[in-house]
Nucleic acid binder design. Sequence first.
DNA 1: TAGATTGTTAATCGATTAACAATC
DNA 2: TAGATTGTTAATCGATTAACAATC
Lengths: 213, 213
Amino acid sequence: MSEKEISLAVIKRLPRYYRYLGELMEKDVVRISSKELSEKMQVTASQIRQDLNNFGGFGQQGYGYNVEHLYTEIGKILGLDKRYNIIIIGAGNLGQALANYTDFEKRGFILKGIFDVNPILIGLSIRGTEIRLMGELEEFIKSNNIDIAVLTIPKHNAPKVAADLVNWGVHAFWNFAPCDLNLPKDIIVENVHLSESIMRLSYDLKTLKEQPN
Amino acid sequence: MSEKEISLAVIKRLPRYYRYLGELMEKDVVRISSKELSEKMQVTASQIRQDLNNFGGFGQQGYGYNVEHLYTEIGKILGLDKRYNIIIIGAGNLGQALANYTDFEKRGFILKGIFDVNPILIGLSIRGTEIRLMGELEEFIKSNNIDIAVLTIPKHNAPKVAADLVNWGVHAFWNFAPCDLNLPKDIIVENVHLSESIMRLSYDLKTLKEQPN
DNA sequence: TAGATTGTTAATCGATTAACAATC
DNA sequence: TAGATTGTTAATCGATTAACAATC
């Protein structure tokens, strides 16, 4: 019995709801109506109610939503109550920056290892996680039950490395390499394409300068 | 005479077209039809033609598109032929990673300065750009004609710092802080919310595990 | 010229917004 | 109970896809 498919547009909004609800909790706000939340977030109240009702009725007529309850429920929908083992491939600047990224643990992602081709980096530790040589990768993945690989390597070998990782049992990627990985479609890939982001910024700037009104 | 507004969905696809055309150029491909490109990119040919025709007719009936010409034209649409001065605010791991990010120059963004509150970092240089104290910021922006600020600072002071920057003349932001900046609406903000990205990945993983088919 | 493929209009599909009955 | 606000259906809007005449 497959439930109705949730649209990608809805999924992409959930983390933002989650963030706002977290901020409300910090301010000790107990309840909020879709109308109040919509004003804060600059979306329509209708959209909030539609989005949430894809997953169930979390509110109460005449009252609104309990902030803490809704926060917890969205967390569950996003799978933030689960634990996953991750590795970082590529210990360059970005790889090291992400290794220091404490949000991983907050979201249930446990950093198990960091790998690089450069022998100079080997043995160095980031927040208690040692950098290892790529040669150890296959053995490490198999013995550490790795779910997710973060790819912070150059684009020229990213698809090849990703294909190897899939063969060794990794089934999800957080990909920072500026390319498509072309993996089987049962493999999950979340891309962070900084160069595409910077081009959108460039477009907006150009457009602003052209229409000075 | 205001031209018809281009939808955000179209803009977001342009950088990906640009990337694929770049790859085709590297392979010395001279021409490509919307059909061939659509197969490579896993979109419909119709969508490619519709998207491009928002900006003009870049193809030729019976022939397709000249790869190099289309690449150049999309580059112009994205404003990649322009030059903008940028600064990085926050010289932590991520700020330093971005300072080393060579795509900036490729896209016409010139790194003029890096700023941090931590005096320990002052004087240190990254790819020839010196790290400066936040106190110098106002003077620096005014005398260096800064267009864009990259924000890699903690969320608790990001909106305040951004508001100051706007007052001093910055009108565009590449924001890595996990918060909304709440700036006037003529200010351009391109957000990179890594924590939202990681939550989408978490959702996909959870969904995969629930439906093992 | 004939074949191919664009540019563009029309049809479809999906997502957002509006409205309101249900109900706390 | 009366007022408020949800959950949900219906209406609208916009984006994607299909189709085909124009034309290289």
